[in-house]
């Protein structure tokens, strides 16, 4: 069974059967459920919910949890090379937070009746999706600043709205996460500030990092509203409260003044301020790149999954030891 469960085939089969076997919902129950949502009530694990609501949340939450876990890798890469003890302890704390965030959300998915073991296997065998941003390499120290500033900044914009999502356990996990992300963003922006006020080489390193991470950060909000398959239903059920494009615009509006304060530019020749809408209008996103990275062909997809599998395998003895220790203690208690 272990072999079958771990295989890619199993996950594929498992996922397709889950989708196919969705039972037809009772219209009266659906109406009562939608009335609750319309009244702004939150849905709790034991409440009745449409099978489709459950499966969409499982998909969204597990992708979110996977992203937190994979998100440890690009930054973990720089812990040993942090330029000072202060930076090193911040980075360790941040990476530990990401592990915690993954746990909060995995626990949230378990309230939907999913086994974390299955979700984890989908991540390890490559069938699960996670945020495309983590498939880009972290080439310089400036990347640690820019990830905190842009990537965690984008995550905050997204998660602040998710904190009002209709599913209670997800919303509560988001509230907790948002509090912690603020530290992530500020430590990132501090790194950027120091580099921006540093030597010409440091400024160039910062600009280079922004040039590489700007567009991938905008892609973090997902496909444009015109191409987002899941958006309509998710908005109706208040799983999402704002569309991908609305959130993306909000992020750009917040971020451009921060870039100006650093004295750096973003790599978008079409960027302009629209005095009427008060929006920073940005150029067209390269959606073919987004599709490539999301479907497994980004610069680091393979490396990330290999690192994740190695970490999982290397941790096997720890899980075994913990189980053995608990069993031994239970035996001692029984004997006493």
């Amino acid at each position: 069974m272990a072999t079958l469960r771990g295989s890619r085939l199993y996950s594929l089969l498992h996922m397709t059967t889950t989708i196919r076997q969705l039972p037809a919902d009772d219209p009266a129950q659906v109406a009562a459920f939608e009335a609750l949502i319309a009244a702004g009530e939150s849905i709790e694990p034991k409440d009745w919910m449409p099978a489709r609501y459950r499966s969409q949340l499982t998909r969204m939450m597990s992708q979110h949890a996977h992203s937190e876990v994979v998100g440890m890798l690009p930054e973990g890469n720089w812990i040993t090379r942090a330029p000072s003890l202060r930076r090193k302890q911040s980075l360790i704390a941040k990476v530990q937070d990401e592990a915690g965030h993954g746990l909060y959300i995995y626990c949230g998915t378990e309230t939907l009746g999913v086994d974390r073991f299955d979700l984890f296997n989908q991540l390890l065998d490559g069938t699960a999706k996670y945020s495309s941003i983590f498939n880009y390499p972290t080439l310089s120290w400036a990347d640690m600043g820019v990830i905190g500033w842009l990537v965690d900044g984008a995550a905050i914009v997204n998660q602040t709205v998710l904190a009002k999502t209709s599913y209670g356990p997800y919303a509560r996990a988001m509230v907790r996460i948002c509090k912690e992300e603020n530290f992530h963003k500020r430590q990132g922006y501090e790194i950027c500030t120091v580099l921006a006020n540093g030597t010409p080489a440091q400024r160039a390193m910062l600009q280079d990092a922004v040039d590489r991470f700007w567009w991938p950060s905008l892609m973090m909000f997902g496909p444009s509203d015109t191409n987002s398959l899941n958006s309509g239903e998710l908005l109706r059920w208040k799983v999402k409260r704002k569309t991908n494009d609305e959130l993306r615009q909000r992020f750009v509006n917040l971020t451009i003044p921060q870039a100006q304060a650093l004295g750096i530019t973003v790599p978008d020749p079409d960027l302009r301020f629209d005095p009427e809408t008060k929006n920073w209008v940005f150029g067209e996103i390269d959606w073919s790149e987004f599709q490539q990275v999301i479907s497994g062909n980004g610069p680091c997809n393979r490396e990330r999954l290999e690192a994740r599998r190695k970490a999982h395998d290397d941790g096997q003895w720890v899980r075994e030891a913990a189980s053995a220790h608990a069993a031994k203690r239970a035996r001692k208690t029984e004997a006493a």
Binding site: A2, F120, N121, L124, R309, Q316, E320
Partner: peptide
């Protein structure tokens, strides 16, 4: 890839 075995 290593198959997940033992206690998880």
């Amino acid at each position: 890839m290593a198959e997940p075995t033992g206690p998880t």
